[in-house]
């Protein structure tokens, strides 16, 4: 392929680049030190969906078991045995971190364990250089979403300009906006954000859900179909309201 543009300017040729990127990863939250109990629960859980866990990177969360002693070799062996790839820990005590490091597990900083919306604005003010590598908090799809297509906006909002066909799927950790008929499925707040909302111009959806509270097309009243609406949770009850 073409030469690195930097080398043309007389600078050293770069062999790699360092960049920051954000990932959504499953968390394994350890609640006790009994590895036998962990083994039993894991085998039941993985048995339900063995493919789902195969080669899944996983973070061990120690914040609910910070005062105990963790048998890392056993735990890591168990997780690996079920096909997962444990690569780091978060939360927990200094002693636990030391034990984790002997197993070559990374200790993830506190910023990773803060729950709730990302404090992006503040971080950017503190660290203007890092801000350029921040993952984009929202996602825009400017063409029709066809049957069988899926779009997932991790850590943010998803906006679609165009129709969302029946059999298509929208997911977002934040809100979902659809400027066109919504005939497929829309799931907002999939990471558990109860404040997430769905806005659409023309509701004909097969299913709408916020933070796991869902409603299928059959249970959406006819007067709310085909009109602009917003969908949100009120005391954990899914409400659909005309706009």
């Amino acid at each position: 392929m073409a030469a690195n543009p930097q080398s043309l300017e007389g600078e050293a040729t770069a062999a790699f680049e360092l960049k920051a990127a954000g990932f959504t990863l499953p968390i394994f939250r350890l609640l006790g030190g009994d590895m036998e109990a962990v083994a039993n629960q894991l085998s039941a859980k993985v048995g339900q969906a063995p493919d789902f866990f195969r080669n899944t990177p996983i973070v061990i969360d120690l914040s609910d078991f910070a005062d105990g002693e963790v048998e890392f070799p056993l735990l890591v062996g168990l997780l690996r045995g079920y096909g997962m790839i444990p690569f780091g820990v978060r939360g927990g005590s200094k002693a636990q971190h030391a034990a984790a490091e002997t197993m070559e597990l990374a200790v993830l900083g506190e910023s990773y364990s803060t729950r709730g919306p990302r404090p992006a604005a503040r971080e950017q003010a503190d660290d203007p250089e890092g801000a350029t590598d921040e993952p984009r908090p929202s996602m825009l799809v400017a063409r029709p979403v066809r049957s069988g297509q899926r779009h997932y906006a991790a850590c943010g909002d998803l906006s679609v300009v165009g129709a969302v066909s029946s059999g298509a799927e929208l997911m977002a950790d934040g809100n979902i906006h659809v400027y066109g008929p919504l005939r497929g499925r829309a799931m907002a707040g999939v990471n558990g954000d109860l404040a997430a909302r769905i806005f659409c111009q023309d509701l004909q959806a097969e299913l709408v859900a916020i933070a796991g509270h869902y409603r299928v097309s059959e249970n959406i009243p006819a007067e709310l179909q085909g009109v602009p609406v917003q969908i949100f949770l009120d005391q954990k009850i899914l409400r659909i309201e005309k706009l």
Partner: peptide, 13 residues
């Protein structure tokens, strides 16, 4: 119509 819609999605990706 639905199958065509699916096909259109594949065409665009």
């Amino acid at each position: 119509v639905r199958d065509s819609d699916r096909m259109l999605g594949i065409l665009s990706s």
